[in-house]
Design a protein around this nucleic acid. Structure first.
Lengths: 156, 156
DNA sequence: ACGGCATTGTTATATAGAACTACAATTCCT
DNA sequence: AGGAATTGTAGTTCTATATAACAATGCCGT
């Protein structure tokens, strides 16, 4: 689907013989390390498809919220409107989504997945979920639920 | 100390009326959200100092490992050598660290904190730790320890 | 109904971060 | 001694993102 490979972000291994002091006790540092590792798992899950985490999120959001505006999509993704527009351009250029005029608001477009986008996101969801499970294999299922619960409390 | 403000990354709030499907069940998504929120706390902790998380980490590593080489610093930070060099340039330009020739290896420099760098990192460590605690106020101390334990297992 | 204000999409520009490559100097290894 | 590997450095490129400005459209108080 995509030509150029997505830049991978190698997991940051601890370097032997280096004193990290109490860095590991900082939530920010620990979260960053874990997030980079999860990103790496995601990258392997979507290798060759040209999909990044924001693009995956956008596809999921479009699937569950057909007709969403670009502004709202940007808000969901936590980026500026211009970024959401580039994202919509990218999806449209690959035939994964399309813009349709809105009847109720002449300014905004409604974003919709195409049939191709539907097929892709359903396939991706399975793969990403599988890799997420594999990434979580280092902890037990109960620990995974507890982890998700705590993360949800930190970033509701 | 710094002239230009660091670009802040606003925490991504959930948008009302939007169906997120099972995104919240993905470890990668949840970790990313929490990490962005933690980054925001860090940004407030270091406002006006021009410090970013990698720079803070570099200062801590230099404090605990005086004489470290730029290559090793890059390895610790998970970036390429060229990135570590720019970081060393940045620290040196602000009088926080200095390069000293090595006796044992003519190729490598040894990186050392200056007295000014020492003072800055000690002050920053207190502030960052305080904000990390404040960020963690949403969960109980026991939960915080459990969270750190799980994150450590995910990204050892 | 009208006039000011807000919102949406869009474009253009700027910036930061980071990777990659190539290179000289130096060290390591055999 | 000589080839391979390492270190710092410089230059280039790429990506992601923010910001500002703009036109078109909608919203709302009077």
């Amino acid at each position: 689907m995509s030509k150029k490979p997505i830049a991978r972000r190698k997991p940051v291994a601890r370097v032997a013989g280096i004193d990290y002091l109490d860095l590991g006790q900082h939530l920010g540092y620990a979260l960053r390390r874990a997030q980079v590792a999860a990103f790496d798992a995601f990258h392997r899950a979507t290798a060759g498809v040209g999909i990044t985490p924001p693009r995956f999120t956008a596809l999921v959001i479009l699937q569950a919220n057909p007709g969403i505006s670009q502004s709202t999509l940007g808000e969901v993704l936590g980026t500026a409107r211009s970024g959401a527009m580039l994202l919509a351009d990218w999806l449209e250029a690959r035939g994964l989504a399309e813009r349709r005029h809105r009847t109720d608001d002449g300014r905004a477009w409604g974003l919709y997945l195409t049939a191709r986008g539907q097929r892709l996101i359903e396939r991706l969801r399975r793969r990403v979920r599988a890799y997420d499970q594999r990434f979580a294999a280092r902890i037990r299922p109960g620990e995974r639920r507890e982890l998700l619960r705590l993360l949800e409390k930190l970033a509701p």
